[in-house]
Each structure stands twice: as structure tokens, then as C-alpha cells.
Amino acid sequence: MEGVKKVVLLTGASGFVGRSLLKSLAKTDNYYLRGCARNIDSVECNDVQLIAVGDMDGETQWNGIAQGVDVVVHAAARVHVMNDTSADPLAEFRKVNVAGTLNLARQAAACGVKRFIFISSIKVNGEATLLGTPFRADDVPAPVDPYGVSKLEAELELLALSKSTGMEVVIIRPVLVYGPGVKANFHSMIAFLAKGLPIPLPFASVNNKRSLVSLDNLVDLIETCIVHPAAANQIFLVSDGDDISTPELMRKVAYSVGSKVFLIQFPVMVLTWLATLLGKQSVATRLFGSLQVDISKNYSLLGWVPPVSLEASLKKTADAYLESKPE
């Protein structure tokens, strides 16, 4: 019925994506919002019911929290961990990403939740693509690492649950997400380039393409999937829709932070060999390899195109870094 507010339950409300989504949803008058996280002390958002649920696993009780909810957006996860030292990394990922997800979904279905949106990962598709041959949403999954395997297992369980309960499931697989407040390697790159050091970097020979997605564009697609009827029981890949090479990315970020980057020609095969020798093969894959996604399905089914350009998103991210950097 038009004008009736939806009740939306968001998990991972304290995370990088969750915070941004919660703030965006709260700006409208279309939703009653419940934000859940392990700890909500760091979450600041008006007109949102915030609920601390501790660790989200197969034992978490959701019945009281999920009652009366129309849509669940499940953004909480055990995220990809570089140099994971767990004795059994896959088992650790499964506790949260599979058992925790299915526990929430089953209780949500029992409470009458109509739609369950699962924030998955492009790692379900795989780690790399051939240049000009992007991943598509209907490709056969080929996860390589335990994180990607756990996300695929959760997807399959959710789709099976949808068939048995009638609860609609929407799966979104983002590529690398960046935006104001981004951490990890993307933050390190910005911080390094912002120093403006006159150090020549051996990346000019890299001829690759990477798909990225800004927080603004990912949040916009999630919001579209909350309400769009055609999103039901579909899988979507998401990016900014404008792929970029490693040299191009460095130049654009350097320009945005007011620096220059000096790139020189150097054989990529040698760079890859050196990285492998140093145990940094995964880093080499991200720097020198391609990972592209085709998001045409998003437009054909939902009429969705990324509302913010790659260049504008990179500048917004760089500006936020400069504003937060200590003098």
C-alpha cells in the first residue's frame, strides 16, 4: 500500500557499508529502521532503533528482533582476512558467514519477513578475469579462498530456503568497496600518494582493468533492491560501471590529493615474479591482474545505473582523507 513505511532490519550497522546505508535510509521518511551490530557504541544515527547482538553465529536469537520486519539487509560478516592465522580458516568463516546467516534467515522467514538481502562478495565468482571478459551474475561460481567459499555456501542455502519458505532472497556481490573512511590497502595507497614523494613507481607497463564500487553506488543499489519487485530471487554484481587500470587509479588518486605520481616502465612479468618470491602473489594479482564485472543486468531488470561517477567518488574519498589527516 502506497505510503506505508517498511520496517528494515540491518545487520552490520557499525561496519563500513552498514553505517553508510543506515545514514542514507534514515534521511528518508520511508522506513522504520532497526540497526544491529556486535557493539553499537560507535553507531551514531538518529531515529534508528539500535540493538547490540554480540557475535552473530548459529546461536544468535533473532525472533524478538525480526518480529514485524519487512526486509532484512544482512551486511554483517566475518570479512576477508589477509594472512589469516586461524588453524582452520574455512571453519571460522562458516561459523559467521554460513551458520550465522542461515540462522538469521530461518528465524526471519518464521517471523514473516518478506525479503532478505544478502551482501555477498565478488569472490564468489573468482579472483580474476581475462582483460575484457568480465564476470556476470549468472556465471558458474568459482571461489578460490575460504572467504569466497563461505559466501557461496551461504548464497546456496539462502536460495534453497527461499524455495521452501517463500521469503524472497536478493544477493548482491560487490567488488572492492571504497569511499570516505576506507581502510586497508586502499587507504594505504591514498596515504602513500598523498606524501608526494618523488619516488618512481614501476607500474606504467601494467595493462589491466579493475572494477571498483563506491559506497554511494553500493548503497544506492541496496536501497533499490529493498523496494524493487524485480529484484526478488536475483543475483546482482555491482560496480561503478567504469573500470580502471592500476596506473590510471594511481594518477587519479594522486591528482585528487594534490600530488604527482611518477610511473616508469618495468616488465610486469618481472614484477609478478618478485612479488611471488616475496610471498605477495595475492598483492600482485590485485595490482597487475584484471577483475571486471558486467552490471548490465542491474539496468535491464531494475533500471539501475550507478548514480555517482568513478572520478567523483575517488575525489570524495580523497577529500575525506585529507580532511581527517592530522596536521
Rank of each mutant, 00 (worst) to 15 (best):
C111N: 09
T129Q: 13
G112E: 04
G18S: 00
A128D: 10
G279Q: 07
Q281R: 10
E168N: 05
V268A: 07
N46C: 05
K114Y: 08
K5Y: 09
L287D: 11
R94M: 05
L277V: 02
F288T: 14
L249F: 15
L159W: 12
G64K: 00
V53Q: 07
S20K: 12
S290I: 10
P247S: 08
C225S: 08
W304I: 02
S120V: 01
P143A: 01
Y32D: 03
V81F: 13
C111P: 11
A284P: 15
G279W: 12
H74E: 00
A320P: 08
V96S: 02
F262D: 04
L277E: 08
P180N: 12
I264D: 14
D294F: 10
T101H: 10
T133Q: 11
A284G: 15
V238A: 14
N83C: 04
L156S: 10
A105E: 09
V206L: 12
L314S: 06
G196W: 07
V175R: 12
R78Q: 04
S300W: 15
A108E: 04
M82Y: 14
Y178S: 01
T28C: 05
S211Y: 02
F236M: 01
G241S: 05
A254K: 03
M1G: 14
L310F: 02
E92S: 07
D243A: 01
S86A: 11
S150L: 12
Q234P: 07
F192I: 01
I244A: 11
V219W: 02
S324T: 00
R136Q: 10
D242F: 00
A254W: 09
V257F: 08
L158K: 05
A109S: 13
G303I: 03
T165L: 07
A105D: 10
S259I: 08
P89E: 02
S296M: 03
V96H: 09
Q265F: 08
D84G: 07
E2W: 05
Y31D: 00
S150K: 08
